[in-house]
Structures are given as structure tokens and as C-alpha cells.
């Protein structure tokens, strides 16, 4: 049990670092119309699905802080990430676990769209605007949804294997 917790902590740190690294420098071949996938969504979805709403919300705050430290400028991703984590966390105790590729893809698509909408709203409140907001949001959501079945499925398996009290 202790050994599994130790591995989980290590995996958590490593994947978080990878997330931050990818946030700073997404390779050009992983972009669609210049937009990278929504990495916080791709990381948070499997974590919240496996760990539940509370652990998900805590992770969302941490990931949001990391994400905002690179982007930010008065616009925060934390509120939407916390809401998404609380929502996705509900699936932990669901009768049918959220693990199918299409479902993960759909959840990632919705998560990415919500995150983009929150950015657009916050920019609007600050008096700014993005000329191609729809195009930007759709490109990012599509790319995130395409990557989610691969990226999230692997992470769901990883977190399930490393969760100490996993009974599945």
C-alpha cells in the first residue's frame, strides 16, 4: 500500500511536470491551426475520474495555478477547472465508470470548450476581444477530443493501478 502511494506521488509529480513542459512548449506538429490541445483538461479528466471530486478539485487548483503562471495576465483557468473536476469526480462512484474512449473524448471536448468560453468571457469583461474566438476554441476542442481517447485512457489506467484503495 505504502509502495503504491509512493509510486502514485512520483507519477503525480512527473505527469504534472510533463504537463507544465507541454504547456510551455507544445511542438508544432501537435497543434491545429496554431492552437495546442488543452493540456490541463487532458491531465485533469483522468485524475478526477479516478480520484473523485475532492482530490480532483484540489488538483484543479494546483494545475490552474501552474497554467495561470505561464499565461494569466489577470485571466484565470482555476474556476472552470475546479468546476470540471467536481463534475468529472462524480463519475468515480458511478455505476458505469467513465472509461470508454468516445466518452472520454466527448468529456474532453466539453471541458476544452468550457475553458475557452471562460477565457473569452474574462477577456470580454476586461475590455479585450479575440477576433477569431470561435475558430480558436473549436480548433483546440477538436484537437483535445482527438487526443483524449489515447492520452486520458492511458492515464485512467495508470491512476487506477496506482490508487491505494482501488477495488475495481
Amino acid at each position: 500500500m505504502a509502495d503504491r502511494s509512493w509510486w502514485r506521488l512520483q507519477a503525480l509529480i512527473l505527469t504534472s511536470l510533463l504537463l507544465l513542459l507541454l504547456t510551455i512548449a507544445t511542438p508544432a506538429w501537435l497543434r491545429l491551426d496554431g492552437m495546442p490541445p488543452s493540456w490541463p483538461v487532458l491531465w485533469l479528466l483522468p485524475w478526477a475520474v479516478v480520484e473523485g471530486p475532492i482530490a480532483g478539485a484540489l488538483a484543479a487548483v494546483l494545475v490552474g495555478l501552474g497554467f495561470d503562471s505561464f499565461y494569466g495576465q489577470g485571466i484565470s483557468s482555476i474556476p472552470v477547472l475546479v468546476l470540471l473536476a467536481l463534475w468529472w469526480g462524480q463519475f468515480r462512484d458511478a455505476r458505469r465508470p467513465l472509461e470508454r474512449s468516445t466518452t472520454l473524448g466527448l468529456q474532453a471536448l466539453l471541458g476544452s470548450l468550457l475553458l475557452s468560453a471562460s477565457f473569452a468571457l474574462q477577456l470580454h469583461w476586461r475590455g479585450g476581444s479575440v477576433a477569431l474566438a470561435w475558430q480558436v476554441s473549436l480548433a483546440q476542442a477538436l484537437l483535445t477530443a482527438l487526443l483524449a481517447p489515447v492520452v486520458c485512457s492511458v492515464q485512467v489506467l495508470l491512476w487506477r493501478r496506482l490508487t491505494p484503495d482501488d477495488g475495481r
Partner: peptide
């Protein structure tokens, strides 16, 4: 060393 010139942010590192 890094550029984020996508929609929501336009930054260089």
C-alpha cells in the same frame, strides 16, 4: 526560447 502565439495569449519567452 518559447512562443505562445495562439488565440487567447500572445506571448514570447
Amino acid at each position: 526560447i518559447s512562443r505562445r502565439i495562439e488565440g487567447w495569449w500572445q506571448q514570447l519567452e
